[in-house]
Amino acid sequence: MDATIAYLLTLAVYYFIFNIQTWGLNLQFGVAGILNFAYIIFFAVGAYITGTFALPHADPFSGQTYFFGFALPFPIPLIAGGLVAAALGLLVGVIALKRLRSDYMAIVTVSVGAIVYDIIGNYFPLFNGQDGISGVPFPLQTRLGLDYNTYQWFFMGLAGVIMLILFLIIQRITHSPFGRTLRSIREDQDVSEAFGKDTFRYRMIAMAIGCFYAGVAGGLLIEYISAFNPSGWTAGETFVLFAALIIGGRGNNWGAALGALLVPVIFQEATRYLPQFPNSDTLVPALRNVVVGVLLIVTLWFRPQGLLPERKAKFPKVQLDAPENKQEEADVALG
């Protein structure tokens, strides 16, 4: 296959994965106002669960150690990855989403991120520690009997279809009365509580769904590149996703998709191909993160609503019998 096409195919799959991540984050942060600074952890858990559910039992001579090893067929590992990530999201939510200031939410999630990173990186029996897991089988490849090149196209299509389904679902959720209640909680949690909304429960559901999306995205990544280790999910990665969402337009799934294209795909991926120079392996990623951070702060300053802002809600057209009869009176009263 032509190298350019192969590269574009890879970028497309990465883009689909980033989309799924930013949509999940959008439901949490953009719609429900949940500050989950450990978002990438749920992506990682989804990846590890998917990988170890798809891998056969750990062979002591292969040099890898990990839990599970069920050798399950696609798409069970992927769904399991999403569900386990969602379950972990609920666990974190129990601590972070109680009716506390957003500072606590942020502190708890940052700490959870550090802890999970610590444990997965250090405790080798779980997911092979810092070395990570590798050799995850490509989904359906042997069953379909495709050669490598054709399989690349197939996987892009598969990831695209999954992304599309997840897009339709998240759009439906965002624009449903459920999504409306989430937005109201984001705007003023006390007021929504005063209208009888169980705000904790709503936020827990948003947390679980968002983490499910993160988990599926992680699962897709490990199915695609067949390996995963802790260098792929540092705190900086969560930050890139927040930057993508805020620059693209929080509260708007199209904005999230635009942000995923601009920040992680074009910006992050393209700069991987800068010419090499001494120390460039630490300097380039460091400067990249600096620039993303500056972009985010500049966006918050000049265009806090992002490039594609949240749209006003649309409602079915209803004709009133006698509209506007009180308007004049109101204008008088309000001076």
């Binding site: 009365p177 459920f178 409306r180 937005r183 705007e187 209208f195 809600a313």
Partner: peptide
């Protein structure tokens, strides 16, 4: 008020037990 929501949408939040609040 729910500042970033429209006036109409503000009024659509309070009704209790909306069927559409259940996914």
């Amino acid at each position: 008020d729910y500042g970033a929501m429209t006036v109409l949408e503000n009024l659509m939040v309070p009704p209790k037990h909306q069927v559409g609040e259940n996914l």
